[in-house]
Computed example of a mutant assay.
Amino acid sequence: MAQASEHLQVQPGLLRAPRVTYRMAAPQTVLAEPGTLAAFGFGAGASDSDDPRWLRVALECFDAPAPVELWQVDAEVSRGCEGAVRWSAGGGWLFAAVELDEADFGGIEGASRQAYTELRRFVGARDESCVLRIWNYIADINHGQDDAERYKQFCNGRAAGLGDFFAHGFPAATAIGHHDRRRVLQIYLLASIDTGHAVENPRQVSAWHYPRQYGRTSPGFARAMLMPARDALAISGTAAVVGYASAHEGDLDAQLNETLTNLEALLATADMPAGFDTLSPLKTYVRHPVDAPRVRDILHQRLPGVPVLLLHGDVCRRELLVEIDGWRYA
C-alpha cells in the first residue's frame, strides 16, 4: 500500500501512465492516431467499430453528443482477439475487454465467473500481467434481495473466476449498473508490466473487510491505484461511504459532498496534489436522471474546468445516488 509519509516523486525508468482524455471525435479518427490503446463510446448512439480497441459502453451520457474517452501511450500498439477477450498492447501496457450475454451462462453469477476466468487466463499469460484498474458494467445491478441481489451474485462469480489471481493485492475498480435492455456484462481492464501502488482511504474500511451484510463474498478492490511511475492516480468508484456504511440516505447534495471529501482523502493519502484540474478526467454516475442537472451544477462549482463525463448509472448500493471515478495526474 502507498504510505502517506512518502513524498510523491515520478519514478524515472518506469512506464509513463496512459493519457486519458475526452474528445469529440469519430472512432475511426482516434483509432487511426499513433499510440491509441483504447477508445470508448457511450450509450446507444455511439458508433460501432470492429477494432478490438473500441468499446461501446452501455451507459447513456446526460450530455449530447457524448465525447469519446481515449487512452493513448507512447508506443506502437498491437491488437487482436483471443476467445471472448478483445485486447491491445503497447509500450508495456495492456487493454483487455470481455462482453458476455448473461443468458449464455445461466445469469449474472455464471457470466461473471466465465468473464473473470477468461481474463485471468489471458492476462496471466501476458508480460503485462499486473492488473491495475478494472471497470465492470452490470445490468440491473440492484435487482434482488439480500444474497440474491445481482451485485452480490456478480461478486460471487468474480471471486470464483479469479481464484487466487489477486492474492497479492487488489486493483482499483468500478462496478456500476447499466440500463441496456440486454443483460450484457461488460468488463475491461488496464494492466502493465510493472506493479502499481494500491491506496486505501483512511475514512473508509477496506472493501475486503466489509461485514457479512454486504454479501457472502466481499467486494475485492483497492480504493485507488498509483501507476508504476507514480505519475497518475487511478481512482476507483467512490461514493458517500464512511467506514463501511452508506451516508446521507436520500440527500443528493450531502452524498455528493461526502463523495468529494472521500476523493480528497484519497489524493492526500497518495501524496497527490489536492484538487482536480483540467487534465483530470472524471466520470460521474447518477442514479436518477432528474438529479443530473443538480449534480452538474455542483460539480461546476466545486470542480471548475475539470472534464466530467456525466453518465446514467446505478451505484452498487441502492441507497447511494451518485458515484465518481477517474484520474489525477501528478
Rank of each mutant, 00 (worst) to 15 (best):
W135Y: 13
S129F: 12
A172D: 09
G107L: 08
G163W: 15
F105A: 08
I138D: 10
L94Q: 05
A125N: 10
Y188Q: 03
A167Y: 10
Q114T: 12
I141S: 01
A160N: 10
S192C: 06
Y188M: 03
F95A: 01
A97P: 00
L190Q: 11
L100Y: 09
G124C: 09
L70G: 03
E118W: 07
G169M: 06
R126C: 00
A75T: 03
I108R: 13
A97Y: 01
L162M: 08
Q72P: 02
L185F: 04
G169H: 05
A175D: 14
I141F: 00
Y137G: 06
R158L: 10
E128C: 03
T117P: 02
G177S: 06
Y151T: 03
L94G: 05
I176R: 13
R86N: 02
V85P: 00
V73E: 01
W87F: 02
A111Y: 04
A159T: 10
I134Q: 03
H143F: 15
F154S: 13
Q114V: 11
N156V: 01
F166W: 01
F165T: 04
R121D: 01
H179I: 07
H168N: 13
A89I: 06
D147F: 05
E99D: 10
L119W: 07
G106F: 06
G144T: 08
G80V: 02
H178F: 15
D74M: 10
A103F: 04
A89K: 13
G144M: 09
A111F: 06
Y116Q: 08
H179N: 15
Q145M: 13
A173M: 15
G92N: 07
E99L: 07
C81P: 00
C130A: 14
F122I: 01
H178A: 11
D164F: 11
H168D: 14
C155L: 15
Q153N: 13
A75P: 00
L94R: 07
W135P: 00
D74P: 00
D164R: 11
P171W: 12
R158T: 06
F165A: 14
D140G: 08
N136Y: 09
A96I: 03
W135C: 08
A103Q: 11
E118Y: 07
C81G: 06
Q186K: 07
S112H: 03
F166P: 01
G80L: 01
G163A: 15
A103H: 11
S78H: 12
R126E: 01
F154Q: 14
L162W: 03
F170T: 15
E149K: 13
R126F: 00
G157Q: 10
F165K: 07
H178N: 15
V77L: 07
Q153A: 13
S129H: 15
D140A: 13
A191V: 04
R121S: 04
V184Q: 10
F165D: 03
V73H: 00
C155A: 14
S112W: 02
H168I: 09
E82L: 10
D140L: 08
Y116M: 12
D104Q: 04
A175I: 13
R183S: 00
D146C: 05
D147T: 07
H168G: 12
T117L: 05
G177H: 04
A97C: 09
E82A: 15
T117G: 10
V131M: 12
P171N: 12
H178L: 14
R181Y: 09
F166T: 04
I134E: 05
I187Q: 12
E69L: 04
